[in-house]
Design a binder for these strands. Structure first.
Lengths: 217, 217
DNA sequence: TCTCTTGTTATCCAACTGGACAACAACGCT
DNA sequence: AGCGTTGTTGTCCAGTTGGATAACAAGAGA
């Protein structure tokens, strides 16, 4: 009569994906250092021993979570940007990112110096971001809508501004989303010789991908 | 014959200070979430029970450590800046900060959303930093060496750039200290209508206060 | 149907955590 | 000298952690 209550049996890939997403949700809520295997297991609805069936160590799990976060984020961003005209794409890329996304980035900055695999992933994805922005800048220049003597350098500069503003907005909380966008747009317009106000006008509705459906407690 | 080996008996203030500094060193090395009372005690050379004699909880300890870090850092910065001419002060403030210092800031950004007292301290100190930079900008303007329509807004902007560049330098590691300074200086010179290169020339030797003598393991 | 693989559970473990407490020792005060 | 205060130690505790492992269960392929 003591019926064994098992979680639904799933394929390896499905379960693995489920675990990674749950980990990511918890990382966004509690930071890389704050997630425990037991919490992840509870979130998924399985026993904590099962996690080890998919990831040989905790570090491997959180590294996979960060990798998944950025990979899926950048994939959906690329798809979104491709469908926009150059200036709108620039505005869309520079506009403030959802809270959850940036929390993960900020946590990664904090943990990377202590976690080599995370540092490697961070380095790689940061360069990806700079490259994407560089190509967007090149599209703007090629369309004759702006100027840039060194798109890669301008990309690096604007990435720094966007990150710094995101810190003020998401972590410190001294500015709201409109102020954040205003600052980044102003710097970008001046740096790339765009018409003042053009980025704010072109800014598309923020519809970036969500990996964090359902709030982690 | 079993001689009791005690740590040197110290005054309350002395010991408290010693504990806070040790905590800060460990926070810089392992993050706010990574420090344990036992490690702090070992670092100081006492038993972990003694920590509780000075701080009623772990949270109170790390909050005190962050507060001490920023308070002493800003105090020594203020003293340094006051002795410099306006442009040199601006360059000194914007120039890259020692690794340990920024590690603590980045960790605070990461932890603040989860730790209310840390969030309060972060908000306060962030505003302090913006205020200091604002007054430096005003000194530059008053001396007729540069222009700023809104010193507070420019301070906010340059703070964002400095933070974003610091992330790229200290956390991600994609740029070195010279590149970091070059980016921040270039933005500041353009934003404040300074002569290009003037900040690099005026940049004083980095001699900011050190609270982290002796490396934490 | 039998077997082999693999997703899953239930425990166990050694290590470590923050906190509590009683005993001790050094010092200041009277 | 006696005494109270307090800096300091050693030890205990209940809880949590990441990891290991054996048993179980649900399929797949022969």
């Amino acid at each position: 009569m003591a019926e064994r209550k098992s979680a639904e049996r799933k394929s390896s890939d499905e379960r693995r994906d489920e675990i990674v997403r749950a980990t990511l949700r918890l990382v966004a809520a509690k930071g890389f250092a704050g997630v425990t295997l037991r919490e992840v297991a509870t979130e998924v609805g399985v026993v904590h021993g099962l996690i080890r069936h998919y990831f040989t160590s905790r570090d491997e799990l959180v590294a996979a979570a960060f990798d998944f976060a950025v990979t899926s984020e950048l994939a959906s961003d690329r798809a979104l940007l491709d469908g926009l005209d150059p200036v709108a794409a620039l505005a869309g890329w520079l506009a403030a990112t959802p809270e959850d996304h940036y929390r993960v980035w900020i946590d990664a900055w904090s943990e990377a110096p202590r976690t080599p695999p995370l540092a490697a992933a961070l380095d790689r994805h940061h360069r990806d971001c700079e490259r994407i922005l560089t190509s967007v800048i090149e599209r703007v220049v090629d369309a004759g809508l702006g100027a840039s003597a060194d798109p890669a350098a301008d990309s690096r500069l604007l990435t720094a501004v966007a990150d710094g503003v995101a810190v003020q907005h998401h972590a410190v909380g001294v500015i709201d989303v409109d102020e954040a966008n205003a600052i980044v747009f102003a710097v970008a317009e001046r740096q790339l010789a765009l018409e003042p106000g053009s980025l704010a006008r072109a800014n598309p509705v923020p519809a970036r991908g969500q990996w964090a459906e359902g709030a982690a407690r």
